[in-house]
Simulated scan of single mutants.
Amino acid sequence: MATIVLSGYYGYENAGDEALLKAMIIVMRKLQPNVRIIVLSGNPSLTRKDHGVHAVHRYNPFAVFSVVWKADLFISGGGSLLQDVTGRLTIPYYLLVVALALFLRKKVMFYAQGIGPVQRNFGKWLIRLISNRVDLITLRDAASARRLKAMGVTDPQICVTGDPVFALVPEQSGHRPQPLVPEAVFCLRPWRKMKGMEEACLALARHLIDRGWRVTFLPLHAGEDREFAITMAEQLGRSEAQVVSRGLHFENALEIVSEASLLVGVRLHALMFATLLGVPVIGISYDPKVTGFLEDTGRPVFGVTHPLSGNTLIEEVDRIIKNYDDECHKASFWAARLKERAEETARMAMELLETRQ
């Protein structure tokens, strides 16, 4: 039985990362039913429970060494692992476990990763040093490929595919009629550098409520977003607004988004959830990965290509409502296209697994 070890930001109650892990497991097992999958996780018991795989703690060096030693294929990804915005040790950690796999002569693949931002020269040097030694690099967007090449990564094959989460696209997505009481889901995150986001979203939420909509604040990362969502609802002060503060499992998040008429998102995977479910989005960018996804799918990027204010968001939502069927079809088109790319990533992983000695 072949063994695959997965390294990523797993076990931290981030609905986006948990959903992409679920998608990776589903599509890999579809292609290779008997494959054994082991996950390096921040909460191994939760990962075992949610995903039905073996898991060890990512910071237990003996456990990590043991499972990497047993691996036939080591996968780093998906997600935005090689960036230094969330901390100075993020890049060294993820590349250290990659280096261990290389030292043990394992097949190594970067799986639909998003690269950057990388601000420090040490991080760029480390990425160049390690990445040029892996067997295969797949990335979720073209901008990530450009960043890697700019850092001097040239040796392994680099393929732009798509985010793994799009493997969760339903087989059939029919017409999405607007309900009698439409609902807008806001998936926001606190970000001090993004000026005006809070005021703009509150103005949009008031506008929607005045037009008869319900508003739901959905924290996608329980640890980081919950308190901000509660604060936003309190500032809004309207009975038509609610906060999902419990049951923040990724499957619950997908179900909530599937019932929405519109998603207003800052979190990348919130925008991806809506797209894969055929729900129109308004995207606000705090990071190049969000900008890249919105641009790749032909959407305005508020805060980057379009000014971020209450008025501009209201104008956009009015445009979407006016062209609602077209917007739903646009989301479904991209969902189908990105599903093919997500499945191609898994096929490439299985092909690499078959080349093991």
Rank of each mutant, 00 (worst) to 15 (best):
M1L: 09
N14I: 11
V27K: 14
K30T: 14
Q32Y: 14
I38F: 02
S45M: 12
D50H: 14
P61M: 09
L73I: 06
S76G: 10
G78T: 15
S80Y: 05
L95V: 02
A101K: 10
L102R: 14
L102G: 11
M109F: 11
M109P: 08
Q119F: 12
F122E: 04
W125G: 04
W125C: 00
L126W: 03
I130C: 01
S131F: 01
V134A: 00
I137W: 02
D141W: 11
A143P: 03
A145S: 08
P156L: 06
Q157P: 00
V160M: 09
V160R: 14
T161C: 13
P164N: 05
L168N: 11
E171H: 12
S173L: 15
V181Y: 01
V181W: 01
C187T: 15
C187A: 15
P190C: 10
R192H: 06
K195Y: 05
E199Q: 15
C201R: 00
A203W: 01
H207P: 03
L208M: 14
R214M: 05
T216H: 03
T216N: 08
F217K: 06
H221R: 07
A222N: 04
R226K: 10
F228T: 12
F228I: 08
M232K: 07
G237W: 03
R238D: 12
G247H: 06
E251I: 09
N252R: 15
A253K: 04
L254M: 15
L254Q: 14
I256H: 09
S258L: 01
A260L: 08
S261F: 08
A270W: 12
T275G: 04
P280K: 09
I282P: 02
I284Y: 06
L294K: 06
V304M: 08
L308P: 05
S309V: 02
T312F: 05
T312K: 02
T312D: 02
I321P: 00
N323T: 09
Y324A: 06
D325I: 04
H329M: 11
A336S: 14
R347Q: 14
A349D: 08
L353T: 02
R356S: 12
Q357G: 06
